[in-house]
Structure formats: structure tokens, C-alpha cells
Design a binder for these strands. Structure first.
Lengths: 106, 106
DNA sequence: CATTTATGTTCGGAGTAGCGACATTTTGAA
DNA sequence: TTCAAAATGTCGCTACTCCGAACATAAATG
């Protein structure tokens, strides 16, 4: 699967417009469109990193060099972001997770 | 730390020459050299993926969006528990984290 | 309907990624 | 030492990334 398709799927799935995603990633919306629709694009790692971050996945997942499922990629990206947060915020999240986790334990 | 340095470290650590790494990654050795020494490089994701693969790391690690090692036991434990939760609960947590994370971005 | 507003698509051009060919330095065997 | 091979640097050129802004089309709004 081409990563252009992947980007488009993730973007629409999150209800984002080209413009919004472009804003968040510091790109031109025209360029995002070209990535999604034109072949074959060869974007810089910088751009891809910004896009991956905005979409909440890893670069490796986006370009398909990773056999990870989307679910796993999202979890990995989440953990990375979580790790960069200040301790008190992390603690809030952990506590909340604990509550959610025991509410309906499977 | 710049990823040029990271590449150089990994390459020499593996005892590879510029030429060898260039071979394995389908790049020109001159380009590998420029990546390692010139600033600021902005390589394509394609190239980086090939290099990361040859060096046995992820793209995300190479470009430094994966700077953190899993140091804190508490965090690691949290991630372990998080991973065991059902997807919809994980999604709730991720969304919550995103909000908390953007409230006061580090 | 006509008009506005949101979203998607096309296009020209500036600047640079990435290469090949050449230049310099380092290695190390005789 | 010597000097050829191997490794590291240098440079100019072409093709492509990425942008701004115009254009097209869909969706609201009244």
C-alpha cells in the first residue's frame, strides 16, 4: 500500500481537511494533496516526521518499512509523546488509565 | 544530537566505510558523507529508511523523534498495562493525553 | 435561485537533494 | 621510505521537493 493512501485514510478518519493537516505540519496544503494523490512522491524525512506526528503514528509505519499494524503504530507513537510530557501530566494520565482499566477489565 | 553524527557513529561502530554503506543503501558515497558532515541535511524518507535499515535502527530513532529510552520504571510499567487494555480504552487515553499534552507543551 | 464559504486541484518557479567525476588524505605491503 | 589502493572529501549540475497563489468544485446559507 502506498503511503499517500495511508495519509489520506488517517487524515479523513480523523476528520481533518487538507488545510488543517497542512497547518499542523507546516506544509502547504497543495503539497499534502500531492503526497496523497501524485505518484511517486519522495518527501523529506522532516516533512514525514511532522505528518506522522500530527496523525499520531510513526514514520516507519507511514512509509511501510514497518510491518506494524496501525494499532501498534498508534500505541508506539502515543508512548513516545507520553514520555516527553512532564511528570505531573504523566501521573494524571496513569491515574486515569488505572480507573479506565478497572472499570471494565475486558 | 544531529542525525549526521548518529549515522557516523553507527556506521563506524559497525566497521563500515562510506562506500560500503552507500552500496547497501543505494546512495552515492559522496551523499552519505554529506549527510554525516554537512549541515543541515534534509534527506528524503526513502534514503533514511534505507540507511536506518542498513544500520539496524528505526527512522524515528535516526531523526531523533525517538530520543527517549525507556528509563522510568513507572512509565514502562504503565505502558505495559496500557498495552493490555482494549483498543477503545487505549484510544480514550490517547485522546486524553493529547489534550493534556497540548495544554502546556514542553 | 445567487453568494458565500469550505475544500480540493493545478501550475510555475525557487531552491536543494543527490549524483558522478574528480581531488585529497590515509593505509599498509614490499 | 615508496607508492598504489582504499578511504575520505569537494564540486557542479540536473531533477525533483515544496511552496504560493490561482483556479475549480462542493457545501452551506439565505
Amino acid at each position: 500500500m502506498k503511503f499517500g493512501t495511508r495519509i489520506k485514510e488517517l487524515r479523513t478518519q480523523k476528520g481533518l481537511t487538507l488545510d488543517q493537516l497542512a497547518q499542523e505540519t507546516g506544509s502547504a496544503k497543495s503539497y499534502i494533496w500531492e503526497l496523497e494523490n501524485k505518484n511517486p512522491p519522495r518527501p523529506s524525512a522532516e516533512k514525514l516526521a511532522a505528518i506522522a506526528s500530527a496523525l499520531g503514528v510513526t514514520v516507519d509505519y507511514l512509509i511501510g518499512s514497518d510491518e506494524q499494524t496501525l494499532e501498534k503504530a498508534e500505541d508506539t507513537a502515543f508512548y513516545r509523546e507520553y514520555s516527553s510530557l512532564p511528570e505531573d501530566t504523566r501521573r494524571q494520565i496513569r491515574e486515569m488509565a488505572k480507573i479506565l482499566g478497572t472499570k471494565k477489565p475486558k
